[in-house]
Simulated assay, not measured.
Amino acid sequence: MSFEAFSDEALLALVAKGEEAALQQLFRRYAGAFLGLARRMGLDSSTREDVVQEVFSKVWKNAPDFDPRRASARAWLLAVAHHTTVDFVRRLEARPRPLEPSEDEPEAFDLPGPGLDEERHLDRIRLRQALARLAPEEREVIEVLFYQGYAHQEAAVKLNIPLGTLKTRARRALSRLKEELREA
């Protein structure tokens, strides 16, 4: 049976019932995005592969916990990937790389990779454009929290601002991003 036409939510429901082929389809859709996330967070290529393996191990184990009323399957999968990657970064005591690509790989993280379709690629472009429209201090908070993987307290120390200020900026930035993306 081919699962290509199934929604992510349907695939997660099948994974929760032990359907390995559904997990393979999710892997084809998301492995490239998860590798890119791990790369942006400063992990080397072999560690990135370990991260992706760990993410899908957690998806397999925790799929029964997915509740489509609380989040989309895509959001749930990306959250699992983000938390797993942050755990790896902390375990290795590595410090993440900045959001901007290095000069030898310009715009590399905006290219569609394995498992990514054109629509998701366009979503990433819209997100990057919306981030660029944020106030510099708001963008900096989003980068440190979500792209570099720092916890709130660590981010406040890194940015040398009070924790309350960091949380206010993050909340304001996320609200603005939501509005910007709704209009796009």
Rank of each mutant, 00 (worst) to 15 (best):
172 R>M: 08
12 L>T: 12
108 A>F: 11
171 R>A: 14
36 G>K: 15
23 L>R: 04
181 L>T: 10
104 D>W: 09
140 E>P: 02
77 L>P: 09
183 E>F: 14
85 T>Y: 13
120 R>H: 11
160 N>M: 06
29 R>A: 00
38 A>W: 09
3 F>Y: 12
6 F>M: 02
31 A>N: 03
88 F>R: 02
42 G>N: 08
130 A>E: 01
173 A>H: 02
153 Q>A: 10
77 L>I: 15
184 A>C: 06
132 A>M: 08
83 H>M: 03
87 D>V: 04
41 M>P: 12
171 R>M: 10
86 V>D: 04
80 V>P: 06
129 Q>F: 10
182 R>V: 11
81 A>C: 07
124 R>Q: 08
165 T>L: 03
102 S>F: 13
183 E>M: 10
157 V>K: 14
20 E>T: 10
84 T>Q: 07
44 D>E: 14
45 S>Y: 10
170 A>M: 11
64 P>Y: 14
117 D>L: 04
135 A>V: 09
31 A>D: 01
20 E>M: 02
83 H>Q: 11
124 R>Y: 06
16 A>E: 06
122 L>F: 13
98 P>M: 08
131 L>W: 12
19 E>T: 13
152 H>F: 15
175 S>N: 12
17 K>N: 05
73 A>H: 04
135 A>H: 13
59 V>K: 00
67 D>R: 01
148 Q>V: 02
57 S>L: 10
141 V>F: 07
72 S>V: 08
133 R>W: 08
39 R>P: 06
107 E>S: 10
74 R>Y: 10
131 L>H: 07
68 P>V: 08
119 E>C: 02
27 F>W: 15
143 E>T: 04
167 K>P: 02
43 L>E: 10
28 R>K: 14
53 Q>T: 14
56 F>C: 00
41 M>A: 06
63 A>I: 06
94 A>M: 04
73 A>E: 01
145 L>R: 15
2 S>E: 12
11 L>T: 09
99 L>R: 14
11 L>N: 05
91 R>P: 00
130 A>H: 05
40 R>P: 12
4 E>T: 12
38 A>F: 14
8 D>Y: 13
180 E>D: 07
85 T>N: 09
171 R>C: 04
164 G>M: 12
57 S>R: 02
79 A>Q: 07
7 S>Y: 15
137 E>P: 03
163 L>M: 00
40 R>T: 09
160 N>I: 03
143 E>Q: 03
160 N>Q: 14
75 A>L: 01
29 R>T: 04
57 S>G: 04
96 P>W: 03
80 V>Q: 04
22 A>E: 08
164 G>I: 07
19 E>H: 13
79 A>P: 06
83 H>T: 09
111 L>M: 08
11 L>M: 06
88 F>W: 13
165 T>K: 08
13 A>M: 12
18 G>T: 08
59 V>E: 02
130 A>C: 06
97 R>E: 12
94 A>W: 02
40 R>H: 07
83 H>E: 11
150 Y>R: 01
141 V>E: 03
176 R>V: 13
94 A>L: 09
73 A>T: 02
160 N>T: 11
100 E>I: 15
13 A>Y: 11
77 L>G: 07
106 P>I: 13
162 P>E: 07
79 A>G: 10
10 A>M: 05
72 S>I: 08
85 T>M: 04
111 L>T: 14
117 D>C: 02
83 H>A: 06
60 W>V: 00
